[in-house]
Design a protein around this nucleic acid. Structure first.
Length: 603
RNA sequence: GGGCCGGUAGCUCAGCGGCAGAGCACGGGACUUUUAAUCCCUUGGUCGUGGGUUCGAAUCCCACCCGGCUCGCCA
């Protein structure tokens, strides 16, 4: 397993840098926080060490997926955490992190490890995107904490932050991700819970500056202090800078030109940074969250997990400033759409809610959790069969989990992958695996034939009535297939009956096929077939009369009506069309045969 | 410039020291009623390149090439 994911925190732990002045936790830290920190450091990174899984584990009887492998290393209770700035809508790619969090949590619990899943909303972060603000609001709101910016939608939410956080919380819930607790930094700071960390950060400001310089090559001025005061005059947090700390108060300035995206009011003065009057800069806030909540595992996207990046800085701050081993990092790669980064501005990678129309939650979870986290996912849903294949793979995993024989190879731990893809962690896995799932591509086809009773066809395929649960699966898939045909399917998957004229491709009809079409036309005029069954019978009869193999007979029909050599069940297709125009087309196609043959013979 | 991931069949990927694999696509066949379903068979390869280690390398080591993302503001 030499190549197994080896979260970067492992080697780094060995060369753990020591703080210049290794002091004990300061007396200012309340007992509760201190105890929490102590207990968690006991149960944290040293207690869980991935990689190492080693030859013996992989050769063992039980094939595991990555989440189980990771969970197996855990010792003691775990706290899994992530947090997010609620600055806008969520796009699909950003759901990989939450899915990974959830799967890790489920894997831990499956091994009997007591696990808490937390999700933080960093809603004191400054507003820095003006896209959703009205022009007159930009000057006023940019730079204020998101929790203090009014809801742009004007719907019953208390703030911009609550509005957008509400959206992603809903999306998470729809994906079966239900953290034990959502915490809001705008709630945490006023309780004073962050005060001990604020005090530590300020007391050790030189150390913090040194860490930024050493780890990230970021040079702050000598007077820079790691705290962001919320300006008591204009309410902005993005525009203030602190240059002095006297042990109880800081000296702040709200500068007009500190940042380009927001304008400060110019006020300044001494103020207490405690109790919600100020917030820690991101890297410190992150480390403070780890200590406060006793976080032991926190996956991070590659944007954070890069060398010298945010995660490195926060790790160093956790160790040296707050004196706690940082949580285990599970770095994860992103989702690329069509080989490129997804980007809403370029129309790629749609917002989460729009992709959800085409990919139901369980398939979306499956997409995210099947590859190891450190592997980028290439997904190109537009104009490809990527979505049908995603369903097929999911169905294959389901079938294998149900003990049915399955074509091809299966990745190790496929049962776990299937189980974790399910929406409900308490689901009856065996029953879910055994449920009948109609093939996505087949549904997409049936949907395009007018007059087909899809549910009846699916029941016929299954051979027995659908259960209520299977009916639900079918309904979701039908909706997804419709959306797929609407916006994603390649032309080859779309079916269009040429009503106007004989398709060009019909020129390829051979003499026997044309004779068959003529015969079918004659028979149809006599019998006036009423339904798909009747047409189907007629087709076989006409083919037999011409001694034409059924395959070639069907091909003739498809060429005449669709301009392609194959198609949906022909009887039902013809039955769905206007009867007289069907006859006209049959004659037309058969007639062209004569003309074409004549020309061919002449030359 | 630093970091991460990848480069194996047309596509998506598995394999990670012991005969180069799967799914899909393609090609062929079967099927008197599921005809874009289902079943069977076949084709398909310079495992990115060059060195090294080894009895043996897609696999381990070194160097390089290519692609993508990411960081060096802020969060």
């Amino acid at each position: 397993m030499a190549k197994s994911a080896s979260p970067s925190s492992v080697p780094r732990r060995r060369s753990r840098p020591r703080a210049a002045s290794p002091t004990r936790a300061p007396s200012g830290v309340p007992c509760s926080a201190r105890r929490r920190a102590k207990r968690s450091s006991f149960a944290s990174p040293p207690a869980i060490s991935p990689t190492r899984s080693s030859a013996s584990a992989s050769r063992g009887a039980v094939a595991m997926d990555w989440a189980d492998e990771l969970a197996q290393q855990a010792v003691g209770p775990q706290v899994v955490n992530d947090s997010k700035t609620p600055s806008g809508t969520v796009h699909v790619g950003s759901l990989r992190g939450p899915v990974i969090l959830d799967v890790i949590t489920r894997a831990l619990r499956a091994q009997g490890v007591r696990t808490t899943l937390l999700y933080g909303v960093d809603d004191l972060d400054p507003m820095d995107a003006q896209a959703l603000l009205t022009p007159d609001a930009i000057d006023r709101e940019m730079g204020r904490p998101l929790a203090h910016v009014p809801d742009p939608a004007g719907d019953c939410h208390a703030s911009y932050a609550r509005h957008f956080a509400g959206i992603f919380i809903d999306v998470f819930a729809g994906l079966g991700i239900n953290p034990d607790r959502y915490y809001w930094m705008s709630d945490i700071y006023p309780t004073g819970a962050m005060d001990p960390y604020i005090r530590l950060a300020l007391d050790r400001a030189p150390l913090v500056r040194e860490i930024y310089r050493r780890v990230a090559n970021v040079q702050h001025p000598k007077t820079w202090h790691p705290i962001g005061v919320i300006c008591p005059t204009c309410g902005k947090v993005g525009t203030t800078i602190v240059s002095k700390w006297d042990g109880e108060r800081v000296y702040y300035e709200c500068r007009a030109d500190l940042v380009t995206w927001a304008r400060g009011c110019g006020s300044s003065g001494w103020i207490s940074p405690f109790g919600g009057a100020a917030k820690l800069p991101w890297n410190l806030e992150w480390a403070a969250q780890w200590s406060h909540f006793g976080v032991t595992i926190e996956p991070g996207g590659k944007d954070l997990s890069t060398a010298g990046g945010s995660r490195d800085r926060s790790d160093a701050i956790a160790r040296e400033v707050f004196e706690r081993e940082p949580p285990l990092n599970v770095p994860y790669e992103f989702l690329n759409i069509g080989g490129r980064k997804m980007s809403t501005s370029k129309g790629r990678g749609a917002a989460a809610h729009s992709i959800a129309e085409v990919i139901p939650p369980e398939q979306l979870r499956f997409l995210f959790l099947r590859p190891r986290p450190n592997q980028a996912i290439e997904f190109d849903p537009e104009g490809t069969d990527a979505i049908p294949r995603l369903f097929d793979e999911f169905d294959r995993f389901a079938a294998a989990t149900a003990g049915r024989e399955v074509k091809g190879e299966l990745t190790p731990g496929f049962e776990a992958t299937f189980r974790y893809a399910l929406l409900d962690p308490e689901a009856d896995v065996a029953a879910e695996a055994a449920a009948f799932r109609p093939a996505f591509a087949h549904l997409a086809l049936l949907l395009q034939i007018p007059g087909v009773d899809v549910a009846a066809r699916v029941e016929a395929e299954k051979g027995s009535p659908l259960t209520a649960h299977e009916r639900g699966i079918l309904d979701r898939r039908v909706a997804a297939a419709r959306a797929w045909l609407d916006g994603y399917a390649p032309d080859t998957a779309r079916l269009t009956v040429r009503h106007d004229a004989l398709p060009d491709a019909a020129g390829a009809l051979e003499t026997e096929q044309r004779r068959f079409l003529a015969g079918l036309s004659t028979a149809a005029k006599a019998a006036s077939p009423a339904g798909g069954d009747a047409w189907q019978t007629l087709i076989f009869a006409a083919a037999a009369a011409q001694e034409l193999p059924a395959r070639r007979a069907f091909e003739a029909i498809y060429l005449a009506f669709l301009g392609r050599p194959n198609g949906p069940r022909a009887g039902w297709l013809l039955a769905s069309l206007d009867a007289s125009s069907v006859l006209v087309r049959l004659d037309e196609a058969a007639g062209v045969a004569v003309a074409g043959a004549a020309e061919g013979g002449a030359s």
